[in-house]
Write a protein that binds this DNA or RNA. Structure first.
Length: 256
DNA sequence: AACGGACTCAACCGCACAGGA
DNA sequence: TTCCTGTGCGGTTGAGTCCGT
């Protein structure tokens, strides 16, 4: 007997989210918090499944998200963490406040893998690629001796390749224990520090998602926090065209 | 200007896991 | 202990965009 689907898919909308949908979801979560994702679309008036709402919130609407490209330092940190953790994107993302696992996963698949290959490293095991098992044979056109345009572009962005990250897989740890990690968190936290005043909804997601959800409930309903969040979130979202009129949208809605 | 290939990234799918009944 | 439900995670896809010809 198969498992029941997470939601009734008949009549539900799929694909890219419209601004109105984003607005509805944001308004609902800001006003009510998240008790149960399955109920969120019904209560928010969305023709989406709860899973879709959760994903949209986590990967795009969360106010603590840091937008923009990852820095070289972040990429190198991802490489190091991947050498220890493997494809545990959520664990890796936990080291980067404001970054999502999806974002890091995409970054890995599109850029970092190529970057590693340029360094002569195997992205899977972070060990030097053997000459006879050159990645050219694996991926066809990628010849180290004659880099593609994309590779040249990557090289431009990465003038000083760092050393190898050959950490043993059995050294995997799941917590932010190293001093390097602490530094990173602290560095990134400067960008979200102020936002934190608006309530712990702005606290970067950690693996303890339960605490994330429950903390939302405690804080986001406060009117002051709400306004504070609007004030601060502009810095994050104004670069995003779809929400350039965010404040206007929310003011309108709050008066409905 | 038009076309086509390469690339990016938001979103979906299916499975695993945790917790409650 | 077992079953069910909700949530989280990783892999994959495909539409949109970029860029070279």
């Amino acid at each position: 007997m198969g498992r029941k689907p997470c939601c009734e898919k008949v009549g539900l909308k799929r694909g890219p989210w419209a601004i109105e949908e984003d607005q509805k979801l944001m308004n609902f979560i800001l006003n009510n918090g998240i008790q149960c994702w399955r109920l969120v679309p019904k209560l928010a008036g969305l023709l989406r499944c709860g899973k879709s709402c959760r994903l949209r919130w986590m990967n795009y609407l969360r106010p603590d998200l840091k937008r923009g490209a990852l820095t070289e330092a972040e990429e190198d940190q991802i490489i190091e963490l991947h050498s220890r953790l493997g494809n545990r994107w959520s664990k890796i993302a936990a080291h980067f406040p404001g970054r999502t696992d999806n974002e890091i996963k995409n970054q890995w698949n599109t850029r970092i893998k190529k970057k590693l290959k340029l360094r002569g490293m195997d992205p899977k095991n972070h060990k030097p690629v053997e000459k006879d098992k050159d990645f050219a044979s694996e991926e066809g056109s990628l010849q180290p001796a004659e880099p593609s345009k994309e590779e040249l572009k990557l090289q431009d962005n990465n003038p000083g390749s760092k050393g190898n990250n050959q950490m043993e897989n059995d050294q995997v740890d799941n917590c932010c224990s190293s001093g390097q990690d602490s530094n990173l968190v602290q560095t990134n936290a400067t960008s979200s520090k102020d936002l934190d005043a608006a309530g712990s909804i702005l606290t970067p997601r950690t693996d303890q998602s339960e605490s994330f959800s429950s903390r939302i409930d405690e804080s986001i309903l406060q009117e002051d926090s709400y306004q504070h969040w609007i004030d601060n979130v502009e810095d994050f979202l104004l670069s995003w065209d779809g929400f350039s009129n965010l404040e206007e949208i929310f003011h309108l809605d709050s008066h409905q």
